[in-house]
Write a protein that binds this DNA or RNA. Structure first.
Lengths: 138, 138
DNA sequence: CTTAAAACCTAGTAAACCGATAGGATTATA
DNA sequence: TATAATCCTATCGGTTTACTAGGTTTTAAG
């Protein structure tokens, strides 16, 4: 299951990406327009800022803005920050590898190969979609 | 993340599938061989029986056996029973569809299209792999 | 200089889910 | 009749999720 956090985060990024002018967008505006609890959204936007997707400006007229162009932001990166590893099992994760404590050897694990296929399929989809793609898809 | 339940369930099914004779396999045997807590495994095997993958025989010499041939069991079915919907979001689920309460219309949802692509990619992988494939893959 | 608007920060919390564990009841075989 | 196996119900500690509360800090505008 995709967490609400990730879902809201993607929606927020897409909302900001759709704005033509690059003026900061307020959390309250996104919150209203996308039906997201404002306080929860704030924490997500903060995380997106800390991980380098967004910049922010404080005080009146402040808000959040994209640091890179939408077509330079791959969905793999977004998902990894908001949701975590793309692999469904740590032992096939490229960025967060961890050995399973139950498998003696991964080579002979029946789950392993399947999970690699799933991971690659997901990586493919997420790597081919940028924020631009998903912001203007409809 | 793939739950332990699903992981263990797949491993157990694969273990049973690898047995040449069709004699029932005991939970204790699987538990030892695959390093799975026996009690936990029991509950999983029970679920796999109730959902029609396994048959069981009680009492001495009893155990679990496959009801269908391994090459007739698609991993989509296994995952759906153990893990739940393959889609990461209910609004793109084929079998467990549910409307999101935040989206007014799915057509314009930026997350929707991406999740459909992910779902289809996963369905593809899981639909092309049978228990036979994963039991004898190595 | 004051006020309001915005991001920023910390903490807590109810509910659900996960990964077991416990303790037996039931059934079949030898 | 003893034993070995499935089957069933309940519980439980820990973690995660999706928020909510209650502020502090910074900035722009009047």
């Amino acid at each position: 299951m995709l967490s609400k956090k990730t879902k809201y985060g993607i929606k927020a990024l897409a909302y900001i990406a759709r704005k033509k002018d690059r003026r900061p967008v307020q959390a309250s505006e996104i919150s209203e327009s996308e039906n997201i609890s404002q306080k929860f959204l704030e924490s997500i936007l903060l995380e997106l800022r800390k991980s380098g997707f967004l910049g922010s400006k404080k005080g009146k007229g402040g808000g959040y803005y994209l640091i890179k162009e939408p077509d330079e932001i791959r969905m793999t990166a977004v998902i990894r920050v908001l949701e975590g590893p793309i692999a469904m099992v740590p032992c096939v994760s490229l960025n967060y590898y961890e050995k399973c404590d139950d498998c003696p050897d991964e080579k002979n694990c029946s789950v392993h190969k399947l999970m690699i296929q799933l991971r690659d399929a997901s990586l493919n989809v997420l790597g081919e979609n940028t924020l631009e793609d998903i912001a203007f898809s409809q």
